[in-house]
Amino acid sequence: MNIVECTDVNKTYQQGQVQIVALKDVSFCIETGAFVALAGPSGSGKTTLLNLIGGLDSADSGDITVDGNPFGQMSQSQLAKLRLYMVGFVFQAYNLIPVRSAAENVEFVMLLQRIPVSERKQRARAILDEVGLGGKYDRRPAQLSGGQQQRVAVARAIVSNPSIVLADEPTANLDSKTGKGLLEIMKKMNLEKQITFIFSTHDKMVMDYARRLILLQDGRLADDRVK
């Protein structure tokens, strides 16, 4: 069963007087439980495509559905609710809330889902333990290393058991050892919890971990292969 379906997706940006084609007639499907890398050089449209799949941005034309929900017909509020329950994000720059501790960052999604406080705390600590941050619950992002912050971001993305996690160059700011550790964690979550993972990356190590590689070149789908 497909969790993501993209059909003839186009996206153009205006940069001053210049129009930049970010995506051109991109079509593909991703099945539930996949571990997919969207690869390509800088400017190939990876992040744009990830943002469109996450409903953070809207396509100029074409259809995107996630778990049967057509994004083109949904309001910002409906998209936000969909993201809350179905989509987890891991960003290249971690994007943790600086004034909240690691546990509170993880709890925030559950807070929005109105999960009772005791359950929130218990689940946040459990997932932080799982990503190897046991004992660092109360540290604020500034008190954690880049790798640790990205693990908090992964914990935040998966704590509410979303159907899909979108990771935008998750290892770009990490050394190879830390990056590998993070990929192991995500792979484990993918296998154990059947969460679909979609990465945008130009990191060879991430591509090696992915079971499917979608290659983008100048906004077009250049290759799509299952390993």
């Binding site: 936000a80 609710k81 809350l84 329950y85 960003f91 600086p98 925030f108 929005l112 889902q113």
Partner: peptide, 16 residues
């Protein structure tokens, strides 16, 4: 602004 963007990305509605 960036924080609001992250909050919206992880599921906070603009109305909230």
């Amino acid at each position: 602004t960036k924080e609001f963007g992250v909050m919206m990305a992880i599921g906070t509605t603009p109305g909230r």
